Simulated assay, not measured.
Amino acid sequence: MDACIPVTPHLLRERGLPPPEADSKDARGRVLVVAGCLEVPGAILLSAEAALRAGAGKVRIATCRDLAVPVGLAMPEARVLALPQSPDGRVSAEAAGVVIEQARACDAALIGPGMMDDGETSGLVRALLADPPAGALVLDAGAMAALAGDPARTHRLERPAVITPHAGEMARLLGVERSAIEADPLAAAREAAARFRTVTVMKGAQTHIVVPDGEAYLHVAGHAGLATAGSGDVLAGLIAGLLARGTGPGEAALWGVYLHGAAGRRLGLRRRRLPGA
């Protein structure tokens, strides 16, 4: 069980993506992105644009009220919903009803980029998981905190959710020190996948992907430039976009991690060739 399957082009060729429909945005899938706060508005655009670039046909963005118009102007192809917000500029748990309704109308929902690990976010996620949509689900950043106190929250989903923790977030999920996660990230990913019954993407210089039955994959072909703020928002958006196209949770995670790494390598090489870079 300690062995990991390498994530390679050969593996992915055996797990091809659903072919996009040539003439229908609706057939390519809808993504709901619930994201952002006044402190981290850029995460909304990073994740939503990544979902579209992954091939989704439409994206809906739900964010706190004060960000809705600026986000809509920055991303005019998106439908943007203004959610109730807390006094400190974060999406309020009172938005749960709207989020649940919108998630039911979409093929995939991404919750969490740019959202804080606080009571408002946890309340929103708990309500969503108590009345889950049939579509695919990605939990990122602050949205994962709602799982720590009750691992069974994700057990009732029709298909496994995808979670995307880095070492610090995984430590909080499992209630251990960060050093323990960094010492054995594969063991942590296995434990989270089994405990929460999720496809678990354990981010790092080497990324481990573990599905609920314990099968594990390892991606090592990233780039040091991906270790920067916002990189995880892009990865979460890629996975959500692939899910909206009809890709299964495990395959969406594998393809998302691979494409994210390939894009990082290409950009790193291009920047290195630029004068003065």
Rank of each mutant, 00 (worst) to 15 (best):
Ile239Trp: 15
Gly264Met: 04
Val138Cys: 11
Pro9Val: 13
Leu243Cys: 09
Thr154Asn: 05
Gly268Val: 02
Pro20Met: 08
Ala244Thr: 10
Ala216His: 11
Ala143Arg: 11
Gly42Pro: 07
Ala221Val: 00
Val234Arg: 00
Thr63Ile: 07
Pro84Leu: 03
Val80Thr: 09
Gly214Asp: 02
Ala194Leu: 02
Gly222His: 12
His208Asp: 14
Met116Ala: 13
Leu238Lys: 04
Pro84Cys: 07
Leu110Arg: 14
Met170Leu: 04
His10Asp: 15
Asp233Asn: 09
Gly232Val: 01
Val99Glu: 01
Met144Asn: 03
Ala236Ser: 15
His260Ile: 03
Arg153Cys: 02
Ala229Ile: 02
Ile61Val: 15
Ala194Ser: 07
Leu157Val: 04
Glu49Gly: 08
His223Ser: 09
Val98Phe: 00
Ala253Asn: 13
Leu46Asn: 02
Ala130Thr: 05
Ala68Ile: 03
Leu139Phe: 04
Ala62Glu: 10
Ala263His: 08
Arg271Leu: 15
Asp23Phe: 13
Cys64Pro: 00
Val80Ile: 09
Arg53Asn: 14
Ser47Ile: 10
Arg53Gln: 15
Arg53Pro: 13
Arg28Leu: 04
His155Asn: 09
Gly261Val: 10
Ile61Trp: 04
Met144Ala: 01
Leu269Met: 13
Leu218Asp: 09
Leu32Lys: 11
Arg15Val: 00
Glu21Leu: 03
Arg65Cys: 08
Ile163Met: 03
Ala263Gly: 09
Glu14Val: 06
